[in-house]
């Protein structure tokens, strides 16, 4: 059964680590600051990159979600690395290697490595955040950070229903596979035919979703929904966690200062 449902893809890993216990607001702020810090780290500031790696790896180890798990999930950015690869040729600098007719420059290489490092560091932080924080807690943290509540509530609904409608989509895909013998719609028929089948699937999925939204709306009305968004108050952040957040932020600022020193 596990492979048949979309929620097998949910990145949350239930553990009882200190990282899991940490207030979601603190985690969200620290993760965002960490990513911002990675993005702002200048090209070739290796000590800063090493420190950032040490930071995120400590958190990963502390969280017990598994280094392998995090690294596998970071792999999704890899295709995008192609988008940056040409900087090795186009950044002016001393040629270090010639591939066919093109020169790879030293500055270009540094730049590419820096971009990939920034991206790799950022995504590890994001994967860790998702792995240690149940999505409802993340939503609460978002509303605590003044993200418009309408948006947060809609995100909550979407989170709930991607699993329901995603499973419906998987059933449709299996239905198509049963007829055409291929899961990705590669098999049989002309391009137009395949497109029409897929379009029909999207259309029927849309109608089911519209009907679903009407029933959900009725279920909300049945329990007194009046268009206002109401949530319970969240407990205040504990002082110790606040200290941790400030210390973490300070550390990231120090790393940024270090990155801007000459050595």
């Amino acid at each position: 059964m596990a492979g048949e449902h979309l929620h097998a893809l949910d990145g949350y890993r239930a553990r009882t680590s200190p990282v899991h216990h940490l207030d979601a607001r603190v985690k969200l702020v620290l993760a965002l600051l960490f990513i911002l810090s990675a993005v702002l780290t200048p090209t070739g500031a290796w000590p800063a990159y090493i420190l950032l790696t040490a930071l995120v790896w400590s958190a990963i180890i502390l969280s017990q979600v598994g280094m392998g798990f995090v690294q596998r999930r970071t792999a999704v950015v890899m295709p995008f690395a192609l988008a940056a690869v040409t900087v090795i040729f186009t950044t002016p600098g001393r040629p270090v290697l010639t591939v066919w007719k093109f020169d790879i420059t030293d500055h270009g290489l540094l730049r590419l490595i820096s971009i990939l490092l920034k991206s790799w560091l950022s995504i590890q932080a994001a994967v860790l955040l998702t792995a240690c924080t149940p999505f409802p807690a993340l939503l609460q943290a978002m509303s605590a950070l003044r993200i418009p509540r309408v948006l947060v509530v809609i995100l909550g609904f979407t989170y709930r229903y991607i699993f329901v409608i995603g499973d419906e989509a998987l059933r449709l895909i299996r239905g198509r596979a049963a007829r055409s013998g291929d899961l990705n719609g590669k098999g049989g028929g002309t391009l137009l035919w395949r497109a029409r089948v897929t379009g029909n699937m999207a259309g029927s999925l849309f109608l089911r979703s519209i009907e679903r939204s009407e029933r959900v709306y009725a279920a909300m009305l049945a329990r007194g929904y009046d268009g206002q968004i109401r949530t319970l108050n969240h407990p205040t952040v504990r002082p110790s966690e606040l200290v941790l957040m400030l210390a973490g932020s300070l550390l990231l600022v120090l790393i940024q200062l270090l990155a801007r020193l000459r050595w």
Binding site: P134, F135, P136, L139, G156, F157, Y159, R160, Y161, V164, R212, R215, V216, A218, A219, M220, R223, G224, Y225, D226, R230, T231, L232
Partner: peptide, 21 residues
């Protein structure tokens, strides 16, 4: 269909919805 009725991310949020409103 309980999927129509359980529209919140967590069980708590769903059961709390009526009393909250």
């Amino acid at each position: 269909d309980p999927d129509d009725q359980l529209f919140s991310p967590s069980v708590f949020d769903d059961v709390a919805f009526g009393p909250l409103y």
